[in-house]
């Protein structure tokens, strides 16, 4: 339970805090992966396109940043994939290609997102239902309702809305700025606000946190609402790329399990209380780079999935090994 820079103090100390808790080693790994994969891509005559890699990371990246928050608090969210679908479908359904309804569409999806996050958080804290079951359940409810109401692409978003997915300021895509912004906001929340420190405390040990005066329920509900909002952003980004939303866009992207995988790959403990959002971003980038290099080397799609599984497990095993000497045996 290391609250990242609980006492910010001087810049140097704060930076060391980031290095210690936000998994600086993962950036070493990221650099290595980038070097190796770019070398491999160039060696096979391919082209390295950093922007494409980054754009690919945006969809998973934003929701993974949200997932980091709930996991740090000792919770988790299996419903994000369907939240992405709900957002994509509702956005295109509400906008119906009309630029004047863009704001309405965004407002509707944000409201739904907040509602879902509140529902998840309140069921977990108020009814004391395990987060795994809660979010599995709300995800199934969303899936059922979506599939019963829509069986194909619903409506479409106006061309203006597609700016989000395709345009940018100069060479920098808007989507990337959005992702960077979300990451920065969440990072600052965790580092400088009481909410962030409470979340680390709750994830490290709910009982202890509560006994020391932390309102643990508030922290958990807040984390779930923020996580849902990141899923909404991912949904909006996807619908701006696809022009229309369909019920399967979320589950097809595997955002639920992949976002959790990216979070643990980034060094955040699944049990909560340890880790941070910068690690998650590295985790997402590593997954995207691996995808890049596998594509360049024309690795079979199915073999790619096998390798992904092995890499995720191996990475988590490596973290567990590093953490071991400090922990008691037998637990």
């Amino acid at each position: 339970m290391i609250a990242a820079g609980a006492t910010p103090g001087r810049a140097g100390r704060a930076w060391r805090g980031v290095a210690a808790s936000d998994g600086a080693p993962i950036y070493g790994v990221l650099a290595l992966v980038a070097l190796v994969s770019w070398t491999a891509i160039i060696a096979t005559g391919g082209q390295v396109n950093v922007t494409t890699t980054l754009i690919r990371s945006v969809a998973l990246g934003m929701v993974a940043v949200g997932q980091t928050l709930v996991i740090l608090g000792g919770s988790l969210d299996l419903s994000v994939a369907y939240q992405v679908s709900v957002t994509a479908v509702m956005a295109s359904h509400v906008m119906q290609g009309d630029p004047d309804r863009m704001l309405l569409g965004v407002a509707a999806t944000v409201a739904i997102g907040i509602g879902i996050g509140l529902a998840n958080g309140l069921i977990i804290t108020g009814l004391r239902v395990n987060p795994f079951i809660t979010t599995l359940g709300t995800g199934l409810i969303m899936r059922g309702v979506l599939n019963a109401s829509f069986d194909n692409f619903a409506g479409e978003v106006p061309r203006e809305f597609q700016t989000l997915g395709y345009d940018g300021i100069g060479p920098i895509p808007y989507a990337l700025l959005l992702f960077a912004g979300v990451t920065l906001v969440v990072w600052a929340l965790l580092k400088y606000t009481r909410f962030g420190h409470h979340l680390y405390a709750v994830g490290g040990g709910e009982e202890t946190a509560r006994l020391s005066g932390v309102r643990s329920a508030r922290a958990i509900v807040g984390a779930h609402v923020l996580c849902s909002l990141t899923a909404v952003l991912t949904g909006l980004f996807i619908v701006s790329r696809l022009r229309a939303g369909a019920p399967w866009v979320g589950p097809d992207g595997n955002y639920d399990l992949e976002s959790i995988a990216a979070v643990v790959l980034g060094g955040t403990a699944l049990a909560g209380g340890r880790g941070g959002v910068l690690g998650t971003v590295a985790g997402v980038l590593i997954l995207a780079l691996l995808d890049n290099v596998f594509n360049a080397l024309e690795v079979n799609t199915f073999l790619k999935q096998v390798l992904r599984g092995v890499i995720i497990v191996a990475a988590v095993a490596a973290y567990a090994r590093r953490a071991r000497p400090r922990r008691a045996r037998g637990a």
Partner: peptide
């Protein structure tokens, strides 16, 4: 599809 929704509600 509503099977899923019922399953979700009942486990919660």
């Amino acid at each position: 599809p509503l099977r899923d929704a019922v399953q979700g509600a009942i486990i919660i």
